[in-house]
């Protein structure tokens, strides 16, 4: 069944961002990057802030920056529930993004691991880096 496609949905509280049949989806969970191909086993994982790369059936990519969430594959259908998802096309220019990374890293630096703000600061860094990565991937594709 080489022509089977993976039905994929990217849903946020503000709406369905992507809904369609795709060839592959890659994202990052706490253990590292993972990819989902059609006919994947039922699967449940959480996502760290990352780039969700969606490979369409014509082998082109669509990139989304998500701020963490959950990913589920059930009966061959993949659903990503993210708190926010920004398509790579809407990201601001590279300079602002690298400034964002620096600012987030600085905040993280000033916190110790045991402080209550640490997890959210870490997330902010991951999110800023993911934005930068998506932006770089987008300009590379041009």
């Amino acid at each position: 069944m080489a022509d089977a496609a993976l039905p994929f949905k990217l849903i946020t509280p503000t709406g369905v961002v992507f809904d369609g049949a795709v060839a592959e989806v890659t994202a990052v969970n706490p253990l590292g990057e993972f990819g989902v191909l059609p006919q994947h086993i039922n699967y449940l994982t959480s996502l760290v802030p990352c780039v969700v790369a969606v490979k369409l059936e014509d082998s082109s990519y669509r990139l989304f920056v998500v701020s963490g969430g959950l990913a589920e594959v059930k009966d061959g259908v993949m659903t990503v529930l993210a708190s926010t998802a920004e398509p790579a096309e809407t990201l601001s220019d590279g300079e602002a993004l690298s400034k964002g990374v620096v600012a987030a890293e600085e905040q993280l630096h000033n916190l110790s691991f045991y402080e209550p703000g640490y997890p959210s600061a870490l997330k902010a860094v991951q999110l800023a880096r993911a934005r930068q990565r998506a932006r770089e991937a987008r300009s590379a594709a041009r």
């Binding site: 969970n29 706490p30 253990l31 993972f34 086993i41 039922n42 699967y43 449940l44 994982t45 959480s46 969430g69 959950l70 589920e72 059930k74 529930l81 708190s83």
Partner: peptide, 23 residues
């Protein structure tokens, strides 16, 4: 509704649960 046993869960159920509850 599928029971929890029907899923392959990563990293683990115990680690995923707080994330789900939070969301």
């Amino acid at each position: 509704v599928a029971g929890p046993s029907e899923y392959l869960i990563e990293p683990s159920r115990a680690e995923l649960l707080p994330v789900i509850i939070q969301s």
